[in-house]
Computed example of a mutant assay.
Amino acid sequence: MTFSLVARCAETGQFGIAISSSSPAVAARCAFARAGVGAVASQNVTDPRLGTSALDLMEAGRTAAEAIAALQAESDHMAYRQVLAIDATGSNAIHSGPNSLGIWTQAQGRDVASGGNLLANDGVPAAIVAGFETASGALGDRLIAAMRAGVAAGGEAGPVHSAGLLIVDREAWPYAELRCDWIDEGCPIEAIARAWEVYAPQADDYVTRALDPRAAPSYGVPGDE
């Protein structure tokens, strides 16, 4: 009941993940990224521990493929899990357990990997990868374009209700973390796209505010002078 992608920007070194699901608050349980290390999606019958474990393994020097192999060997109930990982070089790997739900499949490209379950058809992840690879602009723009390509290819078998976008850059905290935890009508991916449209022009300034507030611009909110 989820489709997603993990990706790396070869120019900036940023990592990102975009994800959507019919379940509520999908990004709260399934989206993981660490600056300088990589990004992971842990989905299907979700075990959030897999996300942090994969990042720990990659931070310790494992490739994405080695981290996925370690999870397969050491974690319980992997037949029910779908895990996507991308490492600092852009190398990526995917585990899709045989008990993944409904139509499930995966696709990989340069600096990007996509997977999904309970899909409308088995071409959705390939469309997401192609959407990312052909898009231009900032990493967030490419992540949104990829998810829109997945929706255009059929998306999930039923309506999706939540979505998230997570990007890390150089700092320990997220460069951007945007979520739509539940929407009854409309598309949560479009809600995230709109949030990114508003947030993107200010993203660098929020980093500046953290590192040196004296150099940060004002945005005219009350008390912000």
Score class of each variant (00 low, 15 high):
Ala73Val: 13
Glu74Gln: 14
Ala195Arg: 12
Cys9Leu: 10
Trp182Gly: 07
Leu55Cys: 07
Gly155Cys: 09
Asn99His: 13
Ala41Tyr: 00
His77Asp: 14
Val40Cys: 02
Ala10Arg: 10
Leu55Tyr: 04
Ile192Trp: 01
Asn99Met: 14
Ser218Ile: 10
Ser53Gln: 14
Ser20Arg: 10
Glu185Thr: 15
Asp184Glu: 12
Gly137Ala: 01
Asp184Gln: 11
Gly16Phe: 00
Asp204Tyr: 11
Asp122Ala: 11
Val198Lys: 13
Gly150Thr: 08
Thr134Ser: 10
Asp212His: 11
Pro213His: 07
Asp169Ile: 11
Leu139Glu: 00
Asp204Thr: 13
Arg34Glu: 08
Gly223Cys: 11
Ala152Trp: 08
Asp56Trp: 08
Arg34Asp: 07
Ala135Trp: 00
Tyr80Arg: 15
Thr2Gln: 04
Tyr175Ala: 10
Ala176Lys: 05
Cys30Trp: 02
Ala93Phe: 05
Gln202Thr: 14
Gln108Tyr: 12
His95Ser: 07
Ile17Val: 14
Val168Lys: 05
Gly97Phe: 02
Phe3Gly: 01
Leu118Gly: 00
Ser218Tyr: 03
Ala153Pro: 08
Tyr80Lys: 14
Gln82Cys: 02
Ala130Asp: 11
Gly61Glu: 06
Asn121Ile: 06
Asp205Trp: 12
Gly97His: 01
Thr89Asp: 09
Leu55Asn: 05
Cys9Lys: 09
Val160Gly: 11
Ser22Thr: 06
Ser75Trp: 12
Gly154Asp: 04
Cys180Leu: 13
Thr63Ser: 08
Gly13Glu: 02
Ala85Leu: 07
Arg148Met: 12
Gly115His: 00
Ala135Ile: 07
Leu5Met: 08
Arg34Gln: 09
Gly51Pro: 03
Cys30Tyr: 03
Ala88Gly: 15
Ala31Tyr: 05
Ile128Gly: 01
Glu190Arg: 05
Trp173Gly: 14
Ala195Asp: 13
